[in-house]
Write a protein that binds this DNA or RNA. Sequence first.
DNA 1: GCTCTTCTTGAGAAAAATATCAATAAAGAT
DNA 2: ATCTTTATTGATATTTTTCTCAAGAAGAGC
Lengths: 142, 142
Amino acid sequence: MSCLARHSQTLRARGYRMTPQRLAILEALHHDGHLSPAQVYQRVRQTGVTEATVYRTLEFLRANGIVFATYGCDGHLTYELGGYDHHHLVCRICGTQVQVKQEMLQDALNRIEQQTGYRMTDGHLTLVGLCPSCQGNSQAQA
Amino acid sequence: MSCLARHSQTLRARGYRMTPQRLAILEALHHDGHLSPAQVYQRVRQTGVTEATVYRTLEFLRANGIVFATYGCDGHLTYELGGYDHHHLVCRICGTQVQVKQEMLQDALNRIEQQTGYRMTDGHLTLVGLCPSCQGNSQAQA
DNA sequence: GCTCTTCTTGAGAAAAATATCAATAAAGAT
DNA sequence: ATCTTTATTGATATTTTTCTCAAGAAGAGC
Ligand SMILES: [Mn+2]
Ligand SMILES: [Mn+2]
Ligand SMILES: [Zn+2]
Ligand SMILES: [Zn+2]
């Protein structure tokens, strides 16, 4: 079954619907990866989707576990389709990002699950640190 | 040396200044812990500090490592004074938070440092998961 | 003291994000 | 098919956050 068909099923099982607007937004994310709400709107406005609907839909899809939200460089949200395990490591100063493989965190997340009772299966965490080129920056030390 | 005196020194060493506005905002955070920008403004407006200045100053203090920023589940920022090592684990559905001790992540962060070259000394990461009471929620499964 | 430079702020404009509400569309029941 | 209920959207209003810019304040150098 295709990715989008599966998402439709997921929504319907919860009493929600896969609408043309939601489909257009999912396809934009499928095609282009990490996008801000404004960038999503640019790609779907031709289909008549409203700006407010873009915000609403992205939040809706995020709360339903279908898309992931990441706070990027500038402190703004970006969205991407879920489905593969990776995490983000973003520099506190300049915002440069690298990906972190799931294996790197697996043991720690298991321990956290045991101790807190939370389930850490969502993936796609956003970690903050200092990238190599910003470590000499005067703002690096608190 | 007091906490605030040390922060003043830190800023001055970088060519910045400890102003009455910054002091008022730091004192609000010192007194009340995790606060949103709006909550900070409520506590300092009597001193004449502008709303725009609150946003500016919080971002300034964050970039200088003096305060920490946490994204809650509602996607809104909250700020708190830095200085002790802990992380946040927030539920994707309901936003309930628990703290995670530094030890739980130490090994993983060391590995990430080695592999990426990033420095993970900032502490105060925000992890996302599903709290026990939301694990039965229909929105829990993607 | 004065001059020069940089930092900082408030005021206001602008942009981004959210909330309200009535109209529409879909699904379910009879 | 008709009726009923709920979900969804666009339009609009509102709130939140960011930006611009000129004025004011602090520090460095003289
Ligand atoms: Mn990602
Ligand atoms: Mn904290
Ligand atoms: Zn950097
Ligand atoms: Zn929860």
